[in-house]
Amino acid sequence: MSGALDGVVAAVTGASSGIGEATARALAAEGAAVALLARRRDRLEDLARELGEATTVHEVDVTDGAAVAAAVADVVARHGRLDVLVNNAGYGSMTPAAEADLAEWRTMVDVNVGGVLATTHAALGPLTDAATGGRGVADVVTISSVAGRKVSGPAVNVYAATKHAVGAFSEALRQEFAPRHVRIGLVEPGLVRSELTEGNGALGEVGELGVMEAADIADAVVYMVTRPRRVAVNEILIRPIEQTR
């Protein structure tokens, strides 16, 4: 059975767990050849075996710009093209500023902003090339957060700042690359069950309808990148039904 993304090559950062892993699965289910980028090679290799021989593994830390450029070049060398980039790698620490560790703040900026910049910068050339091919369009999708629209509390401080930053960056990219048929999309999830939210205490006592699963966000990514080439979905804000902020 053919899929909506047959012949498409997609790269997903932070693909070793959570939203990244779910997105890789969803893209592969639509026929895409998926390049998995993350630090934990063992998890990537397990996922690649499951997704099939068209899947490739690229061990990389998105905060290392030179390594990111090399990884993207490797994706293009092994797959012959790059049609879709999903910037998913992220880090979050929710601590009031008076109690915060400066190193934690720097890590959030390095991963959430620096990582998006490095990966996008490396991929823009190949994506622009792909947009001139048979599909006629290419995509950058960045996983942001509802915190990129609204600061929901004091402890979200630097995390929210990083997500506002990638929102501004994405809008500037959209304006620059729309004439080149590279679509720029931003997915802004509310609370999602993941290693990140389980580790930073964000889940708290929420019930079943107060938290989403990673697959829900992957669905939004697939929706974005499977629109007709005349359509660019620039932002999707998606919350669990019971989330009020």
Rank of each mutant, 00 (worst) to 15 (best):
G18P: 00
V233I: 13
H181V: 01
A122C: 07
V57K: 08
S145F: 02
A202P: 03
V12H: 01
L186M: 12
T55M: 02
A15I: 06
V156C: 06
A232K: 01
A26V: 06
V225I: 07
L37M: 12
P154V: 15
G52Q: 02
V113L: 07
R135W: 09
D129A: 15
H181C: 08
L51G: 03
R49Y: 07
S17V: 09
A71T: 04
D139L: 01
A118V: 02
A35D: 07
S152L: 12
H79M: 12
A202E: 07
T128W: 06
T23S: 04
G134T: 15
L5G: 04
V192G: 00
D46L: 15
A24M: 06
P126Y: 11
R245P: 02
Q175T: 12
T56L: 09
Y159W: 09
I184Y: 03
R149L: 10
E235Q: 10
R49V: 10
G199F: 12
R245C: 07
G136M: 03
R41T: 09
G125K: 11
R135D: 03
L117Y: 15
R174D: 12
G65M: 05
K163C: 03
A98S: 11
A28K: 00
L203Q: 10
W105N: 06
R180E: 12
A10M: 01
L44K: 12
T197W: 02
A160C: 14
A35T: 08
V233P: 00
V211M: 09
V113G: 01
E188D: 11
T95V: 15
A77P: 08
K150C: 00
E208Y: 12
